[in-house]
């Protein structure tokens, strides 16, 4: 599966990508929301977006809202440096929201799997 990772901190971006790749996914990188939009339209194979929250100009949550308003229904996981609860309250339709920390090695693959399972179940239901 191809996943788009969006983070303006290139180091964090690559670390996230490494985690995602370690469980067998292909990764595309974008360094901000604008870049992410371009990558999405250029690569139709992208099946999921994992974005950092805190980015200059357009934040992760703004990116999510923009995508949804454009009718892009891809699963979207938001990563943040802070507590995720506030963000989930603010935007309950997020597929996932988690803190970037050292446990990301386990929690992120788990969350990817959960989100994908949910999508599969939903699509199966239709």
């Amino acid at each position: 599966m191809q996943i788009l990772v969006v983070d303006d901190d290139s180091l964090a971006c690559e670390m996230t990508a490494a985690v995602v790749e370690s469980v067998g996914h292909d990764v595309l990188l974008a360094e901000n929301a604008v870049d992410a939009m371009e990558k999405l339209s250029a690569a139709p194979g992208i099946a999921m977006v994992i974005s950092d929250m805190n980015m200059p100009l357009v934040s992760g949550i703004d990116l999510f809202r923009e995508l949804r308003s454009q009718g892009v229904k891809l699963p979207f996981i938001l990563l943040t440096g802070d507590n995720p609860d506030g963000l989930l309250q603010e935007e309950p339709t997020l597929d996932g929201c988690m803190t970037k920390d050292f446990s990301i090695e386990e929690t992120l693959p788990q969350m990817i799997a959960d989100v994908m399972a949910r999508y599969a179940a939903n699509s199966g239901a239709y």
Binding site: D8, D9, L11, A12, M15, T16, D52, N54, P56, G81, T99, K100, D101, F102, I104
Partner: peptide
């Protein structure tokens, strides 16, 4: 602010 934030973010991922 962003610099402090970035240091926080990546250092947290590295524990």
């Amino acid at each position: 602010f962003r610099s402090a934030h970035t240091i926080k973010g990546s250092s947290r991922m590295l524990k």
